[in-house]
Simulated assay, not measured.
Amino acid sequence: MADWNDPQSTRQGGFGASPSLNGDLIGRAGAYNQGLRRHMLSIYNYMASGVLLSGVVALLFARSGMAAQIMATPLKWLIVLAPLGFVFGMSLGAHKMKTATLQALFWGFCLVMGLSMSTIFLVFTGASIATTFFATAGAFAGLSLFGYTTKKNLSAMGSFMVMGLIGILIAMVVNLFLQSTGLQFAISVLGVLIFAGLTAWDTQRLRDEYDMLAGTEFAGKAVVLGALTLYLDFINMFQFLLSFLGDRE
């Protein structure tokens, strides 16, 4: 980050330092920090609203009885795979899209994610879903706060977590054929740990990216993409945690 964001640079410069220069540095640091907080708050607002939308859609879809009917047909694959299409479309086409288009796609993604997640209400009890959700929310808040405030560079950890995520995906594909409960449990535990680490790293990365984005045309799009990233961290951590902590119907 810029030097004037370092608290050391906002202190009095010592004997002979210009008061006007110090005042200007303090003012610039204050404006920067205010802008950064506003940027991150926008990301969290989008992310939280998206999670809420998905949860409401999932609950209503399950309670209507449509989830049980549709998920028993080949149409379920359209619902299950649709979120991936939204993610790839938003990630690859963000530079060509208008901010309003990207926002609309984000809400569309949250909606179809709600449809695809509706099956958890058919498998797990409502009490265990609620308990796991609040546990995930608490963990996410703590991990994100750590990523935002720590001065330690988490890039190495982030790279390791990405490699672990690839390994998890491969293991999940293998377990489709093995159907091993032991391997499924290990995948769930590792999945929670991996997305916990990704939450902290992604938060730090989004914080640091503000330097390059402040005042640019892409800043609004970056808010939506940042919300998408943290949404995926939260939802995946929740689903992995639910898979071994949730009580089944």
Rank of each mutant, 00 (worst) to 15 (best):
F106D: 03
D247H: 08
A137E: 04
M163A: 15
S64V: 10
A171Y: 05
T150G: 03
L165W: 13
D3R: 15
L232E: 09
G215R: 05
L241R: 08
L225R: 00
G191M: 06
S159F: 10
T10R: 10
Y231A: 05
G215M: 07
I168A: 03
L183S: 02
L169S: 09
T125F: 02
L245W: 14
M117V: 05
D233P: 05
R11E: 12
L242M: 14
S20V: 08
M71S: 07
L78E: 00
G191S: 12
V56F: 11
L60C: 06
S116A: 15
T119H: 14
A29F: 00
D247N: 15
L198E: 01
N45A: 15
S118W: 05
N153D: 15
F240W: 11
L183I: 10
P74Q: 09
G147I: 03
M172P: 01
F15Y: 12
A58M: 10
A58G: 08
A127R: 13
S91W: 01
W4G: 00
M1I: 07
D211Y: 07
Q103F: 01
P83K: 03
S144F: 02
I26R: 11
D24Y: 14
Q184T: 08
G65W: 05
H39A: 07
E217I: 04
G191H: 09
R38C: 02
L143V: 11
Y148I: 04
Q12G: 10
Y44I: 05
A31S: 13
F244N: 11
Y32A: 03
R248Y: 10
T132P: 03
G50C: 11
S128R: 11
G108R: 00
G93H: 00
L41F: 13
A68K: 12
V174N: 01
N45V: 15
G142C: 07
M113Y: 08
